[in-house]
Design a protein around this nucleic acid. Sequence first.
DNA 1: GCTTGACCTTACCATGATGGGAAGGTGCAC
DNA 2: GTGCACCTTCCCATCATGGTAAGGTCAAGC
Lengths: 129, 129
Amino acid sequence: MQIGTASSLSGVSAKMIRHYETIGLVPVPARRHSNYRDYDDDDVHRLAFVRRARDLGFAIGEIRDLLRLWADKDRASADVRALAKAHVADLDSRIERLMEMRMTLNRLVSCCDGDNRPHCPIIETLAGG
Amino acid sequence: MQIGTASSLSGVSAKMIRHYETIGLVPVPARRHSNYRDYDDDDVHRLAFVRRARDLGFAIGEIRDLLRLWADKDRASADVRALAKAHVADLDSRIERLMEMRMTLNRLVSCCDGDNRPHCPIIETLAGG
DNA sequence: GCTTGACCTTACCATGATGGGAAGGTGCAC
DNA sequence: GTGCACCTTCCCATCATGGTAAGGTCAAGC
């Protein structure tokens, strides 16, 4: 099938499919005599795998590892689990950081009158007041 | 003062100070005859403002607005408040998205034995199983 | 046979915030 | 007068993604 078909079946844009190919995340597909890329069901399956991993926030490097583990029929599930737990820890710290921002900002917002007068604790805090 | 001094006083790297200058976030400073940039306390104050806003997760475009509001002595605090609330909403959706990822992943991790055997619900889920 | 339109190809540029490095100028202290 | 710390500009890289331009391919319809 052509890249457009593989794209709609996998949920990965044609642009990104080509990109994943150039960075070596997915194998180089066969070409027809038209020079069009030619994908099969396995390719689509792999692309859908990548998309799901991206949806869970895994970075490209981690997805590379996940694809290797997926292909390795003798893998230890402990390896996958460790990778996933590391990613959860990463998510945790990002969430915590964002929540700190939110808490600080919410505190400032609740202190701000929000009227027509210029006095504003938000700006004052940013200004180092 | 030189850019290095302004950098340590404001907490913004010299690299980023120059960057903020080229994108017009901060004004072009005076130059000495050596062609070195020359900053004063107001510049440092503004840079520290930018850094605090960045620390709260504001994007450059929002910081541009905040700087304008800061400079406008007749601003309505409601305008600042609205900007901050919009940013809080943005933080909320990012947090929610990350928490969804974390929840899904944690569920998978808890279903995974994490032993030497290859069977792994994490990989299977990614594979669309 | 020729046109039209949908698809494909590569190549380049952009985002946003930041860092790295190269090649070279400035200025002060010893 | 040399060495060192600082500065300058310019270019490149990240990460994942999108856009656009210029051109090739192919099938359907006239």
